[in-house]
């Protein structure tokens, strides 16, 4: 049994008359992969947007356990969720810095610690050795992650020039550069072929097991979900209709019904 990392309680999000999330409660555990699945428009991405402070939830609460402290995520606005609470995310439509190099993308993700190291630019302007050392370290960390996804040889190319699958993986390791406690991935396998999908599984397993980072995963691709999830939450029309292990989900009549007519 591992301890609780994230707990979402009675979360509701309304857009005008549309209730995108309706009284949703679930929790995610440390060192586990928790999947959120559901048909298109079920409100999955909206859950992420509330968690990461891009939307302000209409009601409900979200707590993150970090270093034996409980943080109320509602108190953090967008960038602070990443900076202070250590929640990283990727996007359904990839959001890299396309005109910047792969390495630069990785360096921007280490912005906050480099900012401090550069003495808010004052030490950086005079090439202070302490800053150069930290910068070199950040480059090493970038290289470490790029090695894992086999992109080191393309580190100096523009991120926008990479093939689609590599862009997806780059976005994930870029998020890892902020050393998150919780990593939220929005449909990371969308548009990947079978081989890339398998590589993605391996990467996620590595992040979960070796990096001890909790993962919250939105996914459509059932082979990914079933292959790696420890825990599955099923949404439909903003409501939670099922919660359980991957095996239980597969055989649950509610889930099958929700997916009938929308998915195969």
């Amino acid at each position: 049994m591992s301890e609780k990392l994230l707990s979402v309680e009675n979360l509701t999000m309304k857009f005008g008359g549309l209730i995108a999330i309706d009284d949703l409660s679930f929790s995610a555990k440390k060192d586990q992969i928790t999947s959120i699945i559901g048909p298109n428009g079920a409100g999955k991405t909206t859950v992420f947007n509330c968690l990461t402070g891009f939307y302000k939830a209409t009601s409900g609460s979200m707590f993150l356990n970090k270093d034996n402290k409980t943080l109320d995520l509602k108190k953090f606005s967008d960038f602070k969720v990443a900076q202070k609470a250590g929640v990283a995310r990727t996007f359904q439509n990839i959001r890299l810095f396309p005109q910047m190099s792969v390495l630069e993308n990785m360096m921007v993700a280490q912005h906050n610690k480099l900012m401090v190291a550069s003495g808010f630019s004052l030490l950086g302007l005079i090439n202070a050795p302490s800053f150069l050392k930290k910068e070199k370290e950040a480059k090493e960390i970038s290289k470490y992650w790029l090695d894992i996804i086999n992109l080191t040889n393309r580190a100096d190319d523009n991120a926008g020039d990479l093939p689609y699958g590599d862009q997806r993986k780059l976005e994930i390791v870029r998020a890892m550069c902020i050393e998150p406690h919780l990593l939220c991935l929005d449909e990371p396998a969308a548009g990947l072929n079978a081989k890339e999908s398998a590589e993605l599984n391996k990467l996620l397993k590595f992040i979960q097991k070796d990096k001890k980072t909790g993962i919250l995963l939105i996914e459509h691709d059932m082979s990914v979900v079933m292959g790696i999830s420890d825990h599955v939450v099923v949404l439909n029309y903003g409501k939670k209709i099922f919660e359980g292990t991957a095996q239980e989900t597969k055989t649950s009549p509610e889930v099958i019904e929700a997916y009938l007519g929308t998915e195969e």
């Binding site: 990461t52 891009f54 550069c177």
Partner: peptide, 18 residues
Amino acid sequence: RAWEALREDEIACKSLGV
């Protein structure tokens, strides 16, 4: 670098804690 990243994609910047 953060300036240029902001020019490229502000939302991505926020998600990285900038």
